[in-house]
Design a protein around this nucleic acid. Structure first.
Lengths: 166, 166
DNA sequence: GACATTTAGTTCCATTTGGAACAAAATGGA
DNA sequence: TCCATTTTGTTCCAAATGGAACTAAATGTC
């Protein structure tokens, strides 16, 4: 096995050894959460873009409006922690596609009230199936107790994170 | 409270009500994981870019090399589930900055063996403090048992996710 | 009521991003 | 040995991204 590889030692890791980083990372949980978002969530967004032509920000806008009846662009920016200009662009493209409606607020000339259309809701229903399928794949390794624990803990983290600075 | 707002009903949500989406989202866990990655992780990357001029992909490269002694660019792409061209660019910029070294593999002319330099390791040590601080803030709402549970569950999810398609 | 400050939304611009096509090296058959 | 296939890494290009500066409307202060 070892015959004068000194110049190139240590050896390159086997594919399976690459997972060692999950245990060695100093910020274990943050690193894993970030990895999971990449590995689980981004492929779904890729599929959404491929099949429906929506970017991440555009779909997020529809998703928010599918769960809260009226929102301003600012609301969406706050909910998704994304810059306002991204949302602004998404609003105009989703308007053009007929997925959302927009009504100037008669009581505050600055803001506009955004709502989802039937077409937008139909899109949402279709896409949600993909999310649920992906989630089921991902959570397949967990038993019921673990799922319940994860659910409870994530909810705590998420409401706390919403209050953190930056 | 209600005096002829019919044209603009229903009312816009209060800021606190925006969190309702965490409970209404069909793919609760996936949505929360994605949100946490945005809310917790991206601000740290912003700080890294601001203070050290490294993009997310560039820092990830250094981070991987800080935990595994030798890697190819392909290894890093697989570990981080990012496209190879992104890593390729990061390699050359981090070489120019002196954070990593690169040695052509004498046994396989296609690949190059990447290692971290002392300068890279010093950067890593500095940046890790930010990650740990952010993680501590985020996990402050959890008790010890919850942290242990989260740790165990995330490890399960992460190793499973590494095997999922896409 | 005039004026500074805040807030919602948009536009501009430079950077980042990733898919696709590519060259070079290695591998696997026949 | 020869040729098809796979693998590593790179370049090209079009799209997405986000910071900063801006307009317009609302709010707060004197």
């Amino acid at each position: 096995m070892s015959e004068h590889h000194l110049a190139t030692d240590p050896t390159l890791p086997e594919p399976a050894e690459l997972n060692a980083i999950f245990e060695r990372a100093e910020m274990r949980d943050l690193y894993r959460i970030s990895y999971l978002a990449n590995a689980l969530v981004l492929p779904v967004y890729d599929g959404i873009k491929h099949d429906f032509g929506l970017t991440r920000g555009e779909y997020l806008l529809i998703f928010c409006l599918a769960h809260l009846p009226v929102l301003t662009a600012q609301d969406v920016a706050r909910m998704s922690k994304r810059p306002r200009n991204t949302i602004s662009r998404a609003v105009h493209r989703m308007l053009a596609e007929g997925f959302i409606d927009r009504a100037l607020d008669p009581e505050d000339g600055r803001q506009a009230r955004l709502t989802i259309t039937d077409k937008g809701r139909a899109l949402h229903r279709t896409v949600v199936r993909r999310w649920l399928a992906r989630e089921a794949e991902a959570l397949a390794v967990l038993d019921d107790a673990e799922r319940a624990a994860l659910d409870r803990i994530l909810q705590k983290l998420v409401t706390h994170a919403a209050d953190l600075p930056e």
